[in-house]
Amino acid sequence: MTILVTGATGLVGARLVPRLVEAGIGCRTLMRGGKEAPAGATAVEGDLLDPASLAPAVKGVSAIIHLAALFRTPDTGLIWKTNLEGTRNLIVAAQEHAPGARFIMASTTNVYNVDSPRPSREDDAANPAMAYPASKIAAENELRQSGLNWSIQRFGFVYGDKDGHLESLPNLVRRAGWHPAQRMSMVHHRDIAVAMKLALAGAMDGRIVNIVDEAPTSIYELSELVGERMEPLNEPLKNPWHLHVDGSLARQFGFQPTVRTVHQAAQENLM
């Protein structure tokens, strides 16, 4: 099996590709000029915003894992261009040069509406206002209508393997003004690899699937885990189910997180 991975040097890709290589999966990575592929993978020069460069990358692959995305930048136009136009270009390349390949797209649980009355499920309304989740929903829709053999994984808050993502949370929380009691569904990098291997085997074909661990954790607790303390707050939490998603569908497809909670990750030095 040879697969193409986009975003191989990003937050998720840099930790996923080595695990796929270790599992014996041949990984080809789409890289801009001058960048090196992760160890054990083969780099193919190309750019999602340069459609002509994508044909050599997709030819002969049995699957595509599309991780590349842009977020947390004030340039909303570039977010849309990268996340939607880039995905559209990759879809067209797959249609023309690898129509039988599985196309697995990484998305986010941030797409769900903030006023959900319960943990969000894959078929719930998703009409986000922010550019990043809105562009991901638009890209998801492009893939679903492509005629390719697709699956979409919506990740909870990704952390672990010393990626620094969780450590950046307190600053993000302060800027966004989140309530300390807000709980988030999360997923460790190790379990993204578990989910991707299932998807590569076809377990999630044609489905959108939430990929999360077993225990949504409060912003207050997460801040303490990284050595910061939030001020307690007695005011009611307006939308208690925001960022808390239902992971039961993934379990039906055989996904079982090996890092069940962020507290387990801390105890086992997996942060």
Rank of each mutant, 00 (worst) to 15 (best):
D123K: 05
N110I: 05
P117Q: 07
F255T: 14
A265G: 06
N127F: 09
V114A: 06
E45Y: 03
A125F: 05
A39Q: 12
N171D: 02
N210E: 11
R144Y: 05
L11P: 09
A199W: 14
E142F: 05
E36W: 00
G34Y: 11
A39W: 09
K81M: 13
I137R: 12
L148G: 01
M105K: 09
G100A: 10
S168F: 00
T73P: 08
G164C: 00
G177Y: 01
A14S: 11
E214Y: 09
E36A: 10
T9D: 10
A14L: 07
T9A: 09
R32E: 08
A138E: 10
F157L: 03
Y132D: 07
G227C: 02
I208F: 06
Q256W: 12
K81R: 14
A52Y: 07
E235Q: 13
S146V: 01
M196E: 15
S62R: 13
S218K: 00
R102W: 05
T73M: 10
S135D: 12
L222G: 04
T42Y: 04
T9L: 12
L222Q: 06
I79Q: 07
S62W: 07
I91N: 07
E36H: 01
D50G: 00
H188I: 05
G26T: 13
E96P: 04
I104K: 09
P257S: 06
P133H: 03
Q153I: 02
P38I: 09
S53W: 03
N269K: 12
A138Y: 11
